[in-house]
Every structure is written in C-alpha cells, then in structure tokens.
C-alpha cells in the first residue's frame, strides 16, 4: 500500500463484494464469534448451518464470522441477509435453531419470528 488512491480502490472493491445486490451470492449468514458467543455455542451453530446448507445443496449463500454483537444474553447470535431483503438477526441460535433458520429463512424465505432479536431497515 503506497497511497490513499490504492486504499480507496480496495474500499470500493470490497464494498462491491459485500453488496449483496451485486454479489453472485444469494445471501449471507454471519455468525458472531467472540469469546462470549463461542462460549454460548457459536461453533455448534456454525457447524450446523454449514451442514444444513450442505444437506440442502445450497452453495450460493456465504457463511462468515464476525466479532461479537454485544447481546450476550441471546448468544449465539446469527445474522441472515438474503438478497433484496432486510437483514435479520437471530438470538439463541443453538444447533437446532440454526437448522431451523437455514430451513425456514434461507431455504423457505420466511423469517423465523420467534428467534428474531433485530431487524434492519433498508
């Protein structure tokens, strides 16, 4: 990195990649993986999500991790953003709930109402 110009290029490039509307992926699942999330079982949630996507033969949904979202009481938390839909954050995502989220939200297109902790406005 030698200049601000280069920095700007990376920023634009990454923004493009992160923007679902332009991305090749259909959606993104973010699992909060701070100490606290992991202690509450975020790894199990991550494994369950990947496994469930695999089972359903879904390959155009990205699964990524983030730091913590701060709501320890509802950990593990997972955020699902599907193309052209507001992002939804879920709490209490254990193995079973993670699978529900994949089946009902990612696959079925229905928000899993009883697990929602936050919805984003677009």
């Amino acid at each position: 990195m030698k200049s601000l110009e280069e920095l700007k290029r990376i920023k634009e490039q990454t923004l493009k990649e992160m923007d679902l509307r332009q991305a090749k992926e259909r959606g993104k699942v973010v699992v909060a993986m701070g100490t606290c999330g992991i202690a509450a079982g975020a790894k199990d949630a991550l494994i369950a999500i990947i496994d469930e996507l695999e089972k359903a033969d879904i390959h155009d949904v990205k699964v990524v991790q983030s730091g913590c979202m701060g709501l320890c009481d509802k950990e593990p938390t997972v955020e699902v953003s599907m193309k052209d839909q507001p992002a939804v954050m879920y709490g209490d995502v254990n193995d079973v709930n993670a699978r529900r989220i994949v089946r009902e939200h990612v696959q079925g297109g229905n928000v899993v109402a009883d697990l929602v902790v936050k919805r984003e406005n677009i």
Binding site: T35, C36, I38, A39, A40, C72, D73, E75
Partner: peptide, 20 residues
Amino acid sequence: CVGACGLAPVVVIDKDTYGR
C-alpha cells in the same frame, strides 16, 4: 473474569469456555 461475564457463571476447561 475471562470476559464472558454476560454468560455468567463461566467455567473454562482447557481451551473451551462454557457459559451459563
């Protein structure tokens, strides 16, 4: 304190942290 206070009480066994 291991910083997972939101899930108190916390127990750590080897590298695994268990909350609640």
